[in-house]
Amino acid sequence: MRLEYPTSIKIIRVPCTGKVDLLHLMRAFEMGADGVYVVGCLEGDCHYNSGNFRARKRVEQASRILDTVGIGGDRVQMVNLSSSDGPLFARKAAEMVNRILEAGPNPLKSAKSEEAA
């Protein structure tokens, strides 16, 4: 298909989105990620039955915490798609990048550079 998606996205592979922990999401933002989205199988299609549902709950938890600490809960998102749906993967990637471009960079990055200066 030779589809393109934004180069600013770094993919971290996990065996199932159920492996993604709240702590992984938190650490990513603490280390300066501008946004994180978790791409899981379609709901009802999880090979392990509930992995993607668990991931969604953790994403929602992370979103609430990020709102509380002033980073912005919109920076984390859950996406469900079929592993064979390449065009949708590319579209969601572009959507996520646009959403983050609107939100701007992770505010911790400027806070860290001010602290260093």
Binding site: L23, M26, E30, I65, T68, G70, P107, L108, A111, E114
Partner: peptide
């Protein structure tokens, strides 16, 4: 241990964002 990690991470982000070392 996990809840400690999550809380500590959230607090570090909050205070850093407020410009507090």
């Amino acid at each position: 241990k996990k809840e400690v990690g999550v809380l500590a991470s959230a607090l570090r982000m909050y205070f850093l964002n407020k410009g507090r070392d």
